[in-house]
Computed example of a mutant assay.
Amino acid sequence: MRPERIVPNPDLTVGEDNKQRWNQPAHRRHGFHNAHHLFRRTLMVRARNVMLLDTAPLSDFGGIPSLRNLMTHPAFSAICCIQDGRIVMEVAAEDFSLTAPHSIQSITKLHIHLIIGQLIDQGLLALDAKVAEYLPDIGTGYSDASVQALLDMAVTNDFSEDYSDPNSDCYTEEIALGWRLPKGKVAETSLVAFTNAITGFKPDKDRLQAEYKSANTDVLTRIAAAVSPKPLAQHIEDIADAAGYEGGFHISLSPDGFPAFSGGGCLSARDLARFGQLFARQGCDIHGTPFANVSFLSGSLTRAAPSLAAPKEWLRYSNHMMTDGRFLGHAGYGGQFLMVDMQSGTSCAFLSVLQNDAGYDDAYMAQVAEVMRQVCDR
Rank of each mutant, 00 (worst) to 15 (best):
N9A: 03
L12R: 02
N18G: 00
H27N: 13
H27G: 01
G31F: 15
N34Q: 11
H37M: 11
R40E: 13
T42Y: 07
L43W: 04
L43K: 01
R48Q: 09
L67P: 09
T72F: 06
T72W: 02
A78F: 09
I79F: 00
I87D: 12
I87Q: 10
M89D: 05
D95F: 02
I115A: 12
G117L: 08
L119S: 05
Q122R: 09
K130M: 08
P136A: 03
D137H: 14
G139N: 06
Y142Q: 01
S143N: 08
E161F: 05
D169F: 13
R180M: 08
L181K: 09
K183C: 05
S190C: 02
F194P: 07
F194W: 11
A197D: 12
S214I: 00
S214L: 01
N216A: 00
T217L: 07
R222D: 06
R222N: 03
P231K: 12
Q234I: 00
D238F: 00
F249Y: 14
S252D: 01
P259G: 05
G263P: 14
F275K: 10
Q282V: 05
G288V: 03
F296G: 00
L297F: 15
S300N: 10
S307V: 13
S307P: 05
L308P: 07
A310L: 13
S318P: 11
M321W: 07
T323N: 02
G332N: 08
S344G: 02
D361W: 13
D362A: 14
A369D: 08
